[in-house]
Write a protein that binds this DNA or RNA. Structure first.
Ligand code: MN
Ligand code: MN
Ligand code: ZN
Ligand code: ZN
Lengths: 142, 142
DNA sequence: AATCTACATTATAATAATTCTAAACTATTG
DNA sequence: CAATAGTTTAGAATTATTATAATGTAGATT
């Protein structure tokens, strides 16, 4: 979903009614320079800060999952104890900063194309994604 | 942890008392040909099948996390709704079968070495792992 | 071998994340 | 400006996981 686009139109395109809660969530999620990686908790906090009237927790869950189903968000698994979502819905690689627990997209050019030499018989490859775990250089990080 | 090794000794080595529950769990986890990928639920089922006396759920959780802390198990994140563990504790790549929800280790030779061209400034790379999502070739799989 | 003690197991309760429910609300259609 | 289908909401229910505290046991000490 591009920055500053017509969110009402974008929601209609996929059969979602452009309610004020959904439009507000679009603004918070997509009106930014870079890809946004967040947990439900992050999003709830952000929304309550940026809104006069708060959006119910159930609605945040409903809407995030509705956006995911319609291809406007992607769920990312890095830490099994936390559910991350990503406004970049294409297959792409990540750095995960183990100090800050921050997820960062890799640039296309940061990682050479991955070559899968042998696949499971009878299966087709849906996606190939790399996770690079990084941590502070100096400290005695595990 | 190698197959058919002295589990009592292996537990003592890392300061874990070789109780009958822990030894039984070692047998179930490590006495197998291939790497074992499982959820807590899988393991609980397996244990109740293979044992006359059942191991309490709390003990399964405690023990899995104790083994993880001691480096005998590794937690893997593929699906944020489910926690997978892996008896192969080295950094390695996986196929994930989206039809069966099965995790399969890649052979060293299945994937060419990953070349990270640019890393985050001031951070060191702890691990680089690839997840290849596969699904049935024929069916109209998403 | 009996006793001691720190650690482990267990059933159960507590917590946390997520989903469900059903009533009130609202965007769209006619 | 209804009618209606879809949406929001608070709160209850469910699920996975962790905490609690009583009981049990491995390994050490006598
Ligand atoms: Mn989900
Ligand atoms: Mn864990
Ligand atoms: Zn991303
Ligand atoms: Zn593995």
């Amino acid at each position: 979903m591009p920055k500053n686009c017509n969110f009402i139109e974008k929601l209609r395109e996929v059969g979602l009614r452009p309610t004020k809660q959904r439009v507000k969530m679009c603004e918070v999620l997509y009106n930014r320079e870079k890809t946004f990686h967040f947990t439900i908790n992050d999003l709830v906090k952000l929304l309550s800060e940026k809104m006069n009237q708060k959006i119910s927790l159930a609605t945040v869950y409903n809407t995030v999952h509705a956006f995911e189903k319609k291809g406007y968000l992607k769920e990312i698994s890095i830490d099994s104890h936390k559910s991350y979502f990503d406004t970049n819905t294409s297959a792409h690689h990540h750095f995960f900063d183990e100090d800050t627990h921050e997820l960062i997209d890799c640039d296309e050019s940061d990682i050479d194309k991955i070559n899968i030499r042998k696949n499971i018989t009878g299966k087709k490859i849906n996606s190939v994604e790399v996770l690079v775990r990084v941590a502070s250089d100096n400290q005695t990080q595990k």
